[in-house]
Simulated assay, not measured.
Amino acid sequence: MKRTHLMLMALIFWAITPVAPGVQADFRDTFGALDGELTISGGTAHIPVMKALATQVMKASPQVRISIAGGGSGLGIKQVGEGIVAIGNSGRSPKKEEIDRYGLVLHRWAVDGVAIAVHPDNPVRALSFSQLRAVYAGTLSNWKELGGPDRTINLYTRDASSGTRSVFWKKALSKGEIHAKANFVKSNGAMKSALAGDPYGIGYLSVGHLDASVAGLAIEGVSPTLENVKSGTYIIARGLYSNTKGEATGLARAFLDALYSPEGQKIIAAKGFIPVKG
């Protein structure tokens, strides 16, 4: 394991946060005979589930340590492919050339919607796709044109390695322009913080990250709810993947098995995603 490279990652989370209330699991039978460190990086939408599951695993087996880092889908795919981490998360299916180059095996475990969001004080609660494309192209630049205050719209986006951005760009913008004036943020969490602090901002983030600090917008009359994502009515959605280089073994295999277990599926649902198997 290239630990020097791993330590250069922007942020490492030691999974010590509590699981959602009412979701508890006992993984002693699965992990009791295992030890060592499991390294995970990539998509930031995945982090709440990864941390919650890792907490339960390490509670069951104190000899196991699990480190979880973000960095975006592209980084997760690259780092697992290069053997830097054991699991590389992505909010998009890896491309065929990535699968072929690295020998990746894909593990799809949830469906997630990508919500367009604003500050809760913003009175605008709905947009059409054409309005959204105009906003991000910069041709519609004042909230007044959308029924909001007479203030400039502050755009927020993610970098090119983000799976969230990829889905937003393809399914919400129809591969349209993202204006050069847009502010870049590094993660779903950073996007939520930016919008929660900017009454005139607009951005996008995982539906699983929506809370009272930001307001999700209806698009073409369809709100970004779990029910609408699950039914397919809300079309700005994607799969969440945990990728391995070849078939998963050891701690990585045990962790993925726990993710697909009934307890793991409950954690996925509790964090605002739609659990799937395979």
Rank of each mutant, 00 (worst) to 15 (best):
H46E: 07
V229I: 11
Q63A: 14
F129R: 08
I219E: 02
K186L: 13
K96V: 09
G91N: 04
M50N: 13
K192G: 06
Y200A: 12
A69K: 02
L240R: 02
E97C: 08
K175P: 00
L251I: 12
A254M: 09
K171V: 04
T152P: 00
I202C: 03
I178F: 07
F273A: 06
E82H: 09
G70T: 08
T225A: 06
F31T: 06
L53Y: 07
G201S: 09
L8H: 03
I47K: 02
P94M: 04
G278F: 10
P62H: 07
T233D: 10
T17H: 11
G74A: 14
D211C: 05
A54Y: 10
I267H: 05
L75R: 10
T17A: 13
E247T: 09
R125G: 07
D159Y: 15
G197S: 14
Y200S: 13
D100N: 11
S73K: 09
I16P: 01
R3H: 00
R133F: 00
I219D: 02
K78V: 09
A254I: 11
Q24M: 13
E263D: 15
Y200M: 04
A172R: 03
P21Q: 14
V118E: 00
L210Y: 05
P262W: 05
S223R: 14
N122W: 01
M191Y: 08
V19N: 12
V135T: 00
S93G: 03
